[in-house]
Amino acid sequence: MRDRVRSRHLVTHVVLMAGALLMVSPFLWQFLTSLKTLGESTRVPPTVLPSSPEWGNYSAFFDVVPVGSMAVNSVLALVLRVAGQLLVASLAAYVFARLRFRFRGPLLAGFLVVLMVPPQLFVIPQYEVIRTMGWLNSVQALALPGMFSAFGVFVLYQFMRTLPPELDEAARMDGANPWQIYLRIILPLCRPALAALTILTSLFSWNDLLWPLIVNTVPDRMTLPVGLATLQGAQGTDYPVLMAGSLLTILPMVLVFVLLQKQFIRGIAMSGLKA
């Protein structure tokens, strides 16, 4: 019996390992290519290992596009969007989950409707709003619409509803006002949900293409994904440099994922998002 279980696990491991190899092989190929010369990268049949590693491809990436400012833009946009989204979403979620007020239903419906509508329906007017404010090619342009995303409100609202109502009642008896209850009682209890939201919002922000592509068109103001896209347009055939650049831009999120795996997975399971 035990032997049968073990041999079955052996088959399982072979299948899972083969699958895992398929999953990561594009990244291995990306890494190997990033160290090849241009000639090696287009040879037939392909060279598997570079004859001598060309680390210069990585610095070449920095010479072709303003990678430094693009990385700064990506980071600033992420920080602003995450901070804004946490504040905005937690406030709204708190009000809907814990307070009793007029028009609660219709106002909540306003947030939920937005959740069900594909993003393209907002994009053109959002662009017009940003342009009217004179904010095209700015960091706030990258972060603003996402800060007010109803997605965060929904995730936190679901979580806050599960907290026992006695918490608020006891605090009110002690004379706390709703703002104090939000800040001192509810928010600290929401740490797991806030962590999940932080991770998902960071992921959306870092990887997003369509919105940054539209609002920030000056190279210095672009984010990394847009920068990569223009790099491909300009040097479409210098594969080693393209692979080096793309590897560098995915590295931060992969590292964060490896470190915070549990929170990542909980975030996905909690919201079922990022399909």
Binding site: A20, M23, L209, P225, S246, V254, F257, Q261, F264
Partner: peptide, 27 residues
């Protein structure tokens, strides 16, 4: 689980470039 999950956290723009290269008709 970690290995199967990595593509989810990687930037679509970046992995699309890798796949485009893998799919190339000549090499």
């Amino acid at each position: 689980r970690t290995l199967y999950f990595v593509p989810v956290v990687t930037m679509p723009v970046a992995v699309a470039m890798v796949w485009r290269y893998i799919y190339n008709g000549d090499f």
